[in-house]
Amino acid sequence: MSKAKRYNPTKTDAQIIKKGSLLYFFLFPLFLSVVIALFGKHYSAFLINSVAFLLFFGVIFLSKIGFAQEMDYKKAKLTKAPKVPYKQLSAYLLGVSTLFSAYIAGGVALIDSLIMSGISILGYWLYYGFDPKKDKLENFGDISADVVLETLGEAQDKIADIKRDISTMSDTLLKDKIEMALERADIILVAITEKPQDIRKARKFLIVYIDGIANVTSSYNSLDESDISQDTRNRLLELMEDVEIKFKAELERLKANSQFDLDVNIDLLKEQIRG
């Protein structure tokens, strides 16, 4: 296998992120104050403390989404900056929660509460940072960034669908062939990610071939495997071989394009040196 990396920008699940444990630590005293207020029959304090607890819980919830977004952004080679700045929103909510908890629930003087609120926003910004703002979209030529991201995303979704479909296949030979083709498809996606200008040339591959395999695997899955005749199976195997050859050719073509670009640039530099 070549050294090519897989194109695998799966979305990070906000729930599994460990970052943000400090915020959980802050929930503990509020939780205690809710329980103590309840047992002490201070119902108004119980209500207010519960609101403060929920506000801080909201901060954690928003922060986790923000952290997940940031991780996806860092992982992806081509992406746009997050549309909703969740980390920034949670910093402001932290300010509001701090003010509420100190001034309304805790009876701290307003000016002190406001200062604490401001410091909490500053602390959040310093400790966790705010959301990334810059789009990671360079060297696109005349192609719209949305087209590139959308096409890559669609291809990736379709590949994920095919992978899910073939996971239940019991025909190992066919499964291996499809997996091999998908591996090549992954490599092609990486090549396009590295040189997005090629997306126009590779569009047919991305739309027609991957879509075709997705259709074949999904209709294959809708049938009982014992109902598939030997003849159909052979045709399928042949088809997958053809697909693999096509994918290989596509990759070669993309490589050749890069080679051509290099040649053009060398010639150009030569001309400039001579001139």
Binding site: F26, S120, L126
Partner: peptide, 30 residues
């Protein structure tokens, strides 16, 4: 400012401000 200082300052700020705010309701009950 280097990132470690940012983290340390951020941590202290959070601990001071949010820490005081979340313990205030608890203290108010006693």
């Amino acid at each position: 400012m280097s990132s470690i200082y940012k983290k340390v300052f951020g941590f202290i700020f959070l601990l001071f401000s949010v820490g005081s705010a979340v313990t205030a309701p608890l203290l108010a009950l006693f």
